[in-house]
Simulated scan of single mutants.
Amino acid sequence: MSYYGDGDGFDGGTTANGEKFDPNAMTAAHRSLPFNTKVRITNPANGKSVIVRITDRGPYSGDRCIDLSAGAFGAIAPKSQGVLKSAKWEILG
Rank of each mutant, 00 (worst) to 15 (best):
P44S: 15
S69M: 04
G47W: 00
P44Y: 04
V50C: 02
I54L: 02
K20S: 14
V39L: 05
A45I: 05
A16K: 03
V52A: 06
T14C: 13
T14I: 10
R57K: 08
A70Y: 09
D56K: 10
I66A: 09
R57A: 14
G58F: 03
P23N: 15
R40A: 01
P34L: 05
N24L: 07
N46F: 02
D63R: 14
D63P: 05
D11P: 06
N17S: 13
K48G: 02
D22F: 14
T27F: 04
A29N: 06
I66Y: 02
D22P: 05
K20Q: 14
T55R: 14
L68E: 08
H30T: 04
T14N: 00
D67C: 04
G58N: 09
T27N: 07
T27I: 13
P34F: 06
D22H: 01
T42I: 00
F35Q: 13
K20V: 15
R53Y: 08
S49I: 01
R40D: 02
G12T: 12
A29L: 08
I54R: 00
V50A: 04
H30Q: 11
N43M: 06
A25Y: 08
T27C: 01
R57M: 04
G13D: 09
N43V: 13
R57S: 11
L68K: 04
H30P: 11
A28T: 15
E19A: 14
M26G: 07
G12D: 04
F21M: 03
S69D: 01
N17W: 12
D22E: 08
S32Q: 05
N46H: 04
Y60T: 15
I66P: 11
G12C: 02
G62Y: 08
D11T: 10
A28I: 15
P44M: 01
A16W: 09
S61H: 14
N36P: 01
T15K: 05
P34V: 08
S69R: 13
G18P: 07
S61W: 07
P44V: 03
R57Y: 10
D63H: 14
N24W: 10
K20D: 03
N24R: 12
P34W: 05
R40T: 00
H30D: 06
D67F: 14
R57H: 02
K48T: 03
P44F: 00
T37N: 09
N43E: 07
I51C: 01
S61R: 12
I54K: 00
T14R: 15
I66G: 09
G13I: 00
V52S: 06
V52Y: 10
S32L: 03
A29K: 05
S32D: 08
G58S: 10
N46V: 07
R31I: 13
N36L: 02
D67R: 09
T42Y: 03
S49L: 02
V50T: 12
G58V: 10
G58W: 00
L68N: 01
T37L: 00
A29I: 13
P59D: 12
A16I: 03
G62Q: 13
K20T: 15
P34S: 07
K48A: 08
